[in-house]
Nucleic acid binder design. Structure first.
Lengths: 145, 145
DNA sequence: CTTGACTCCGTACTATACTACGAGGTTTAT
DNA sequence: ATAAACCTCGTAGTATAGTACGGAGTCAAG
């Protein structure tokens, strides 16, 4: 008797540090493909689901919406699109990501300014942050991927 | 007769590309300081409000919550905290930002992989993305600032 | 001196992304 | 074989971040 390899909802949820309900939610949203079922109806997830969930969580923390993440994940599956299209869309996403990186670097720089300007151990009343970064936020960073 | 310099809600909203209602919402949340009022009760915003709003919008697009942004903005105003504390908190935020940058760079790398692997002009069926980034998402990036 | 655009306020509604609930069936350890 | 633990589903509730509404007051142009 060969046992089907894979994990159940609870195990996956624990491994990826998400709520079990979130798995169903992502399945509905198309972020997590419908896994095979046991005779009982129980879902059996492959190990790779853990990485997929971590990818989703990571991308979210970077300001991508589930919609955008879906788009990222499905890029390779869009068989209607030809490779020229995929490359074009990928390049757009790269640009968008570079914008985000640039903005984060400005923020990092501003905080480092704050750290160096805010020396000694007195009151913090005069330590600036927004003032340290007049350039930040002047370029539009929207969430379009 | 000297006129009070500043802009009204509608002008600020337009300049910063946000909804007028959002201004009131941010005011309630403490993200936008309560501006002075005209005799009529109309708010008069200083020019600097535009930058503040753009900062907020930019930070949001990078995955920061309003709560976290408030924390960033108020860092310099926390007169209870001493400079040693502010520096410590700023360093934590810098680390967090560096994590985000690193993750975005991985994503960028993965997309560039996709672009180079997905050459020619045939079907996009076999162009990978998640597969191109086995390492992505293995390190936790939560939203704690 | 009126008309239209703008602003005020409280409150209610919406979208996104979960998260919980409850009734019932399944699996597993004792 | 039975109880604890787990899973199924639809549906309902929550948190965050706006966004809209509507009645009333204000301001500027004609």
């Amino acid at each position: 008797m060969s046992k089907i390899i894979g994990m159940r909802a609870g195990q996956l949820a624990k491994a990826a540090d998400v709520n079990v309900e979130t798995l169903r939610y992502y399945e509905r949203r198309g972020l997590l493909p419908e896994p095979p079922r046991q005779a009982s109806g129980y879902r059996i997830y492959p190990e790779s689901s853990i990485d997929r969930l971590k990818f989703i969580k990571g991308a979210q923390a970077l300001g991508f919406t589930l919609e955008e993440i879906l788009d990222l994940l499905n890029m390779r599956l869009d068989t209607d699109a030809n490779r020229t299209d995929v490359r074009k869309r990928a390049r757009e996403k790269v640009n968008h990501i570079q914008e985000k990186i640039r903005a984060l670097q400005e923020m990092e720089h501003a905080l480092n300014q704050l750290i160096s300007q805010c020396h000694g151990d007195g009151s913090a009343a005069d330590c600036p942050i927004l003032e340290a970064i007049p350039s930040f936020g002047t370029k539009d960073i929207d969430n379009e991927v």
